[in-house]
């Protein structure tokens, strides 16, 4: 049998391919022995090739010899590797159904999550977040917002007071501000214009029941600029409603009465459960989000802004209230949010 260099190279390639194909099927010791027998024993094809090298023409012998040696090294290395793998698997007993390692999971409060969702939406349209005092002067919470001296909101049934008598000649008593609207005049007084404020703070009120918290958070949007009108108020509400509640939800504004906006509105968002047909979760197909309106010229004046030059709008809504109105949350008793029961907190 005459042997050519070409033939030898072809054989070497074949053996390499075969060996590679077989490696995937080697699962245990006896598979490994079979591999050894086939590729590395005296009678194996590699050794046959080695032996036939001498029959080659002398000028071809060197190249073919190198290739054959490479193949042999390759096969020996493969054999060793496979041997390691098999003994590795043999010594390990992994129950793949046993649970993975435990990492303690953290939980951010639903209120924090809601505030972040809200800020994410408003930051995109240029709003910034601020925080104003919760223990506040009567003037910022009421006086500067057109509340007459004898208004029921100033009653001790509705608002928490610190002082019995006024302690500041202009600013009056210290109180716990029952709404974030107290931040409106403070923001105006900062002197920054235009304003796109988002004031998120705690607001204590003297009530505690299924739908009222002693303290809830409000987010108060305030926009003041030249040329702001009702269209823009509707534009911002529309933007928020679609992003926070979903594209399919609709909204409407209805006339309402607040002392510090004129005109004032109540905003409703369409009920996701019945799609405006009316169901037990909503009022005739709509859910109230909260109030809003065009900033009253007197409030602008109190904040040191000229109402003949600037106009604005404001809205102040409940963080927790809006959160539980999102589709699918299904929390009926709002007090759960502040009971700090871990069975509740760990769900979010």
């Amino acid at each position: 049998m005459s042997i050519s260099k070409k033939n030898i190279f072809k054989q070497i390639q074949e053996i390499k391919t075969q060996a590679e194909q077989q490696t995937d099927q080697i699962k245990n010791q006896s598979d490994l022995e079979r591999f050894k027998f086939e590729f590395l024993t005296r009678k194996s094809r590699v050794n046959q090739i080695m032996r036939s090298l001498k029959d080659l023409k002398s000028q071809d012998r060197k190249a073919a010899g190198q290739a054959a040696n490479q193949l042999k090294n390759f096969l020996q290395k493969k054999y060793k590797q496979l041997g390691k793998q098999i003994s590795f698997d043999k010594n390990l007993h992994i129950d793949i159904t046993a649970p993975g390692c435990y990492y303690q999971m953290g939980h951010l409060h639903l209120t924090t999550q809601a505030i972040r969702e809200i800020m994410k939406i408003f930051e995109k349209i240029g709003f910034y977040r601020v925080r104003y005092p919760e223990v506040e002067w009567d003037w910022y919470a009421f006086g500067a917002l057109n509340f007459p001296e004898e208004h029921p909101a100033r009653d001790e049934w509705e608002t928490f007071f610190i002082d019995e008598q006024s302690v500041h000649p202009k600013l009056g008593k210290r109180i716990l501000t029952p709404h974030t609207s107290s931040g409106q005049v403070r923001e105006m007084q900062s002197g920054r214009l235009p304003i796109r404020m988002m004031n998120i703070s705690k607001c204590p009120r003297r009530q505690l029941d299924v739908s009222h918290l002693l303290i809830h958070h409000q987010f108060e949007g305030l926009v003041v600029d030249k040329g702001i009108n009702l269209k823009h108020l509707k534009g911002v509400i529309n933007y928020f409603v679609k992003q926070y509640f979903g594209q399919a939800r609709d909204f409407r504004i209805r006339p309402y009465d607040f002392l510090f906006t004129e005109p004032s509105f109540e905003v409703d968002v369409s009920c996701a459960a019945c799609n405006k047909r009316g169901c037990k979760l909503c009022k005739q197909g709509w859910l109230e989000i909260g109030g809003c309106g065009m900033v009253h010229p007197k409030v602008l004046k109190n904040g040191g802004i000229d109402p003949s030059q600037y106009t604005g709008f404001a809205f102040g809504w409940g963080v927790e209230r809006n959160k539980i109105m999102q589709e699918g949350i299904n929390i009926k008793d709002i007090r759960l949010l502040y009971q700090n029961d871990l069975n509740f907190l760990e769900q979010f």
Partner: peptide, 10 residues
């Protein structure tokens, strides 16, 4: 109509 404010962003 609903329109976002056009003015300068603070």
């Amino acid at each position: 109509p609903s329109e976002l404010p056009q003015g300068q962003i603070p």
